[in-house]
Design a protein around this nucleic acid. Structure first.
Lengths: 194, 194
DNA sequence: AATTACCTAACAAACGTTCAGTAGGTATGT
DNA sequence: ACATACCTACTGAACGTTTGTTAGGTAATT
């Protein structure tokens, strides 16, 4: 792994943990066992480093769902697989997920456009297509949003949800969450279609 | 309004905007037109100020939904009203919402427990009760989570969703979002009940 | 006289950034 | 073959600024 990659790899973790202003160049330098100036050799300034870190973290997520879309199973099962993959990615790559959360929180319009167009657009369009297949008379955009929203919330708010009465350990299991969401959606969409 | 309240009121806005490490004591002092030392007269240190700010921001949210629960309409309509109120609160009080997002991102276990027990517990329990009423055979915890997750996602991810193809301005209107979510949930739950 | 609410000014530490310099590799000219 | 020149990747030390925090003083209220 090149030095630049090592910097980016570590920056993902630390920016996700501490945020932009929470992580200093010295802390990052220490974490990769290099001098601060070495980082400035590869990146013009902190802001550019952060932007490239975000881009780098998101770059390999494009083709995670490829196998879901390529499989030629019925639409219902496709939805189930997509939801399961979404939850798995978020649970496994927590740094990526936290970085994403920070970006949404920041909500810089320019970066939102970059993120939407460059990285998530394809997935969202395919999901809308699937939604149309499942429930043609419903608004595909709203349905697609609901799918992602349901999945994301379960993962994001787990630390909070754990503290509510009636919480069970099985709520942490991806298959339980996925089954519930998929069931709810399929029934909800089907009922309206009828 | 007392000085202490003025500090807290401003701190809500600025902490929500810039985050903990993004906001300096000098910036806050300037915003309320006071000296830095004046803040230190009311709060022992920055961390204590932040904690109290969070508590202060959340304190008056307890009884927002009171009228929803007190109304004696059928469960279906109650769900619709709750969802609508949830969306309205998040859209109107954006600073509160952003501060909440930051807290979830931080996900400090101790503070999560405080938040859950002290502030949101009652709402969540009432929502679970409503879920049981609507779909007795389903897991109330999962259903309640789904309700909140759906509503939250639409508001939180609006800046991103705007950039996807097929987006319409009506997706910003609380009544449209609420209607879609409520419909989806009622149908989803009813179908399973049958 | 004592308390409260504030001020100015300063502290050490940490911040982002830059600068001059060096070790090592590679390519060119003689 | 050897010297020259140039490159990339890096270091250590320093720049000026901003950070959280505090000490000491003032002016008003109780």
């Amino acid at each position: 792994m090149s030095s630049k990659e090592k910097i980016l790899e570590t920056a993902i973790v630390l920016f996700a943990q501490k945020g932009y202003s929470g992580l200093s160049m010295r802390q990052l330098a220490q974490a990769i066992d290099m001098s601060v100036a070495a980082i400035y050799h590869h990146f013009p300034d902190k802001n550019a480093l952060y932007l490239e870190t975000v881009r780098f973290a998101f770059s390999d997520k494009e083709q995670v769902f490829a196998q879901v879309w390529e499989s030629d199973c019925p639409a219902e099962e496709k939805l189930g697989r997509f939801i399961r993959s979404l939850i798995d990615v978020m649970l496994q790559d927590r740094d990526f997920h936290r970085l994403m959360q920070r970006e949404i929180l920041e909500a810089d319009p320019e970066r939102m456009q970059l993120l939407a167009q460059g990285i998530f657009k394809r997935q969202f369009c395919l999901l809308m297509q699937l939604a149309t297949e499942l429930a043609p008379e419903q608004d595909a955009h709203l349905v697609a949003t609901s799918v992602i929203g349901l999945a994301k919330y379960y993962v994001e708010y787990q630390p909070l949800l754990k503290n509510f009465p009636g919480w069970k350990p099985e709520y942490e299991m991806p298959e339980v969450i996925a089954a519930h969401i998929t069931g709810l959606l399929l029934n909800g969409l089907k009922a309206k279609a009828a």
